[in-house]
Amino acid sequence: MTTAFSDQDRLIPIHTGAGSGRLYVKDWTPDTESAGTHPPILLLHDSLGCVDLWRSFPASLAAATARRVVAYDRLGFGRSDPHPGALPRDFVAAEAREVVPLLLDHLGIGDFVVCGHSVGGGMAVETAARFPDRCRALVTIAAQAFVEERTLDGIREAKQGFQDPAQLARLARYQGDKARWAVDAWTESWLSPAFADWTLDVPLSQVRCPVLALHGDRDEYGSAEHPARIAAGRGTVRLLPDTGHVPHRECEDEVVEAIRAFLSEA
């Protein structure tokens, strides 16, 4: 049986130390009695992502878990306003510190589950650490926990690929005239010598909720050491076979079922 749900999108004005602008937010709420009784799931996208690039995953996740699912475009991405400049060195922590609290307040969200893909997974860890009394569970998908040479090699290769105007044009279908900024923000932040010692070790030590770390065994941007470090002493690693860096598109059903089962016990 197909689950019916309502979806809604909006632009939310925010003001932070990094700048001001409007965030594009979309949520999917199942038309079930239990949808309002479970903490909603907040999705945090990757370095070149946006709401639209989650594709069918949010709706599938909402239907499977009978929970409201909320996704948003970070400033500078998708349908949100442009970012005013370069990303700060602590941009991963800054998202959890400056933006997520404003978003939760605006949407009237109390307790929640946070789920992030790639660098969004790092932001999800920072969010769980910052809200130990409200974050009920943490899910990471292909997240990085430290700067690994495999990650940098993948970024260097992607940076070279985006010199091709056709490849940048494909990204612009989702990022508009912000596409070049998004590519530069990603590649130059991670490849900067100032970012070389970045890790999630401190926020991970402050996470108090159950953790599920999903990772493809063929992820070109990070080895299995990343989910192992994220889940160590806190939760479960799930390595997905024959899967690369975007598990929620490559094997959506398996990812959704893993999260559903995890949340049913969290």
Rank of each mutant, 00 (worst) to 15 (best):
M1W: 04
S6I: 08
R10C: 06
I14N: 10
H15D: 15
H15P: 01
K26P: 01
D27C: 08
D31M: 04
T32C: 13
A35I: 10
G36D: 12
T37G: 01
T37R: 15
P39A: 05
I41V: 14
I41Y: 11
H45S: 07
S47R: 06
L48N: 01
V51S: 08
V51E: 03
D52P: 01
D52Y: 02
L53H: 06
P58V: 13
A59I: 03
A62N: 11
G76P: 13
D81A: 04
D81W: 07
P82S: 12
L87K: 06
V92R: 04
A94W: 12
A94G: 09
E98I: 02
V100I: 15
L104D: 02
L104R: 02
D105M: 05
H106Q: 10
G108M: 04
V113F: 11
C115S: 07
G120E: 09
G121T: 05
G122H: 04
V125P: 05
V125H: 04
E126L: 02
T127H: 11
A128Q: 06
A128C: 12
R130N: 11
P132C: 11
P132Y: 12
C135S: 07
A137N: 03
A137Y: 02
A137L: 09
I141V: 15
Q144E: 04
E149A: 13
E149M: 10
E149D: 14
G154S: 09
I155Y: 00
K159F: 00
Q160L: 09
G161F: 05
Q163G: 06
D164W: 07
Q167F: 13
L168Y: 07
L168V: 04
A172E: 14
Q175F: 00
D177P: 13
D177E: 15
D177V: 08
R180D: 14
W181A: 11
A185I: 09
W186Q: 00
W190A: 10
A194Y: 06
F195K: 08
A196S: 15
W198Y: 03
L200R: 04
P203Q: 12
C209Q: 06
A213W: 08
L214Q: 11
G216Q: 04
E220L: 03
S223L: 01
A224Y: 00
A224M: 08
E225W: 00
H226Y: 06
R229T: 05
I230E: 04
A231H: 12
R238Q: 07
L239N: 09
D242T: 02
P247N: 08
P247K: 12
H248G: 02
V256W: 08
R260D: 07
A261D: 13
F262N: 02
A266G: 01
